[in-house]
Computed example of a mutant assay.
Amino acid sequence: MRGTVWENYPNRLVVDVGGIGYEVMVPLTSIDRLHPVEGMPIDLRVYHHQRENGQTLYGFATDEERDVFVLLIDRVSGIGPAIAMAILSGMAAGRFKACVAHAEIAELSRIKGLGKKTAERIVLELKDKVGVAETWKEVEAGAVLPAAADAELALVALGYKQVDARKAVKKILESQPGATTEELVRGALRSMA
C-alpha cells in the first residue's frame, strides 16, 4: 500500500490512498523503522485479514515482518492477529526467527502477552519452517560453516529435529574442525543413534 500518512497512532496509521483513508494496524517495530509523520509518503506491505464480523488491514515495513505475521496466524494453533502483532511489536522479525530456530523459549516468553506454553507451541510448530532459512543466513554471515549447514540440513531431511542435528554437528566439529559434510553426517548419526 502506497499513500500518505493522514493520522499516526502508537499501533496504527490512517493512510490516504487516492483520497480514501485506510486504517492499518502496524507493529511497533515497523513504526520505529518507518518513523511516520502526518503528510509523509509511506509504503507498507499489507495483509488483509477477513473475519465474519469485519476486516482489518495489517501493515509492515518489510516483507520479512509480513511473512512472520502470516506464518504465525496460519501455522500456529491459537495464535491470532493480536498475538502475532504483540510478538512483532516486542521483537524484530529476524530475532524472532532466530529464537524459534534455536528454541530460545525464555526470550520468547518475555514478550508481553506471550506465556511459556505459547512460546513452546510456537517453537514446536515453526522451528522446521523457520530453521532452514536461518541456517543459510548464518552461513552467509560466516557464523556457520557451509559443511556444517549442509550436514545439519541433511539430518533434518532424515527426520531429526533441527536443534538436535545442530548439537550433534557442533559436537563433531569440536573434535574434527575440518570435517567434511559426509563425515559430519556419519558422526552425527552415530552419536544420535
Rank of each mutant, 00 (worst) to 15 (best):
I172S: 07
G94Y: 02
T135L: 14
E52V: 09
M1Y: 07
H35Q: 13
A93S: 14
R12K: 11
A82K: 15
A119S: 15
V14N: 00
S77E: 13
Y160C: 02
I122S: 06
G21I: 00
A101Q: 05
H35E: 12
Y22R: 05
E182L: 06
T180R: 11
I42N: 05
P146T: 08
R95D: 15
F69Q: 06
A61I: 02
M85C: 10
R51I: 03
A103P: 03
E125P: 01
S30T: 09
E152D: 06
K129G: 06
A147P: 08
G159Y: 06
D128N: 14
D150F: 02
P177A: 08
Q176S: 14
R166A: 15
F69K: 03
G21D: 02
K116V: 12
V139Y: 07
D74F: 04
I87N: 09
L34I: 15
L13K: 03
E64N: 05
E138F: 05
G21P: 01
T62L: 04
P10S: 10
R166W: 10
V17M: 07
L114C: 12
Q50P: 00
T181I: 04
R12H: 07
A82T: 15
V169Q: 05
R121A: 11
T181P: 01
T180K: 12
R121K: 14
P10I: 04
A193W: 11
A61N: 06
V24C: 06
G115A: 10
D164L: 12
E64T: 08
L88W: 00
L13A: 05
V169W: 01
V70I: 14
A133T: 13
P36E: 07
G90W: 01
E125G: 05
R45D: 12
E107R: 14
E120T: 11
M192C: 12
V123Q: 08
R121T: 12
V46T: 10
Q50H: 10
V5H: 07
F69W: 02
S175Y: 06
K170F: 11
R95Q: 13
L57K: 05
L189P: 08
A141W: 03
A103N: 13
N11L: 09
I79V: 15
R110Y: 04
I31L: 08
Y58W: 04
E138A: 15
V17F: 03
A119N: 09
V15K: 02
A133Y: 09
K97E: 13
M85F: 08
I105H: 03
H48C: 09
R186L: 13
G142Y: 04
G159D: 06
A148E: 14
A157D: 15
V144S: 06
G159F: 03
R45G: 04
S30V: 06
G39T: 03
L173K: 06
G59V: 02
T118V: 13
A61L: 00
V139S: 07
A92T: 04
A165I: 05
V15S: 04
R190P: 01
K97F: 00
R121M: 08
P10C: 08
G19A: 03
G39C: 02
L28Y: 12
N11Y: 10
M91Y: 09
E23M: 08
P41Q: 08
I87P: 05
